[in-house]
């Protein structure tokens, strides 16, 4: 039986691990390679790295982090942030990532999804979506709008429609981030998660808002997600990944138990 995945997310800026709340006020919280290895040892099922560095020069530092991670941890990891071209995709895959996540790059140029899928296979193309709650309107019938640039730019695109488009173009998975919930530790946006999960047949990772193990259980049961992305909940040592998986298993969620 397929296990539900627990996926720590590491935001990397200039080669260092960082974390913000609602995409702002980022602080340095450690070395990404050491942290990734710790999560691997604790039983993380996958790891996500986001390059939140803006500058082109720092790209090399980030790819170096990816390579170091790849030589030390032997579970899949995906890489996102600043992926705008097929060459960007190839760079991170060659550096050792299993999957590549496109977000703003796909909003601006949806063809990158189909081109990436044709070149590398659908299963390694993750569509990252940053979503904000807005008033329902003709343009945004679901009341969930796609935003880019770290949540600052509203795109006038309905999140549900974009999820379906991404799937049709060949994305193999969706990583669905609620910016309203991001960093709050008040729980995932379950309404959004379920809406998207029921609109597509590809796997959906719930992201943004995990504060307790019960939130993660809710994401994969009520929210119908196949994986729960976490950050603050483990980055500050509040829980270990082993604790989280144990609690999820006790709640009846199938999790990977041997590692």
């Amino acid at each position: 039986m397929l296990s539900k995945r627990v996926i720590p997310c590491l935001d990397v800026r200039n080669g260092r691990l960082t974390k913000g709340i609602k995409f702002e006020g980022n602080v340095d919280i450690g070395d990404p390679v050491e942290t990734a290895r710790k999560y691997y040892e604790e039983g993380a099922d996958e790891i996500v790295f986001y390059d939140i560095t803006a500058s082109h020069e720092a790209r090399g530092i980030f790819l170096d982090v990816v390579e170091k991670v790849a030589s030390q941890i032997f579970i899949p990891f995906s890489v996102g942030g600043g992926i705008n071209t097929i060459d960007d995709m190839r760079d991170v895959l060659v550096a050792g990532a299993e999957k590549v996540s496109v977000n703003s790059g796909a909003v601006k140029n949806p063809d990158i999804i189909s081109e990436g899928a044709a070149r590398f296979g659908s299963q390694c193309i993750v569509l990252g979506m940053d979503v904000k709650r807005v008033e329902k309107s003709e343009t945004i019938p679901s009341g969930f709008e796609i935003v880019i640039h770290g949540g600052r730019k509203y795109m006038g695109m309905d999140a549900i429609e974009w999820a379906k488009t991404g799937e049709a173009l060949g994305a193999g998975e969706i990583c669905l981030n609620s910016i309203d919930a991001d960093g709050t530790k008040e729980g995932y946006d379950l309404e959004l998660t379920r809406l998207v999960a029921e609109s597509v047949t590809i796997p959906v990772i719930a992201s943004g808002g995990a504060g307790t193990p019960q939130h993660m259980v809710d994401a994969v049961t009520k929210g119908r997600a196949t994986a729960a992305l976490i950050a603050s909940i483990v980055h500050y040592g509040e829980y270990t990944i082993t604790d989280l998986k144990k609690t999820m298993a006790e709640a009846g969620v199938q999790t990977r138990s041997v590692w």
Partner: peptide, 14 residues
């Protein structure tokens, strides 16, 4: 097993 349609790709630990 919960009678929910499977998602494709098959992605994860099994």
């Amino acid at each position: 097993h919960e009678n929910v349609p499977i998602r494709v790709p098959h992605m994860g630990w099994n």
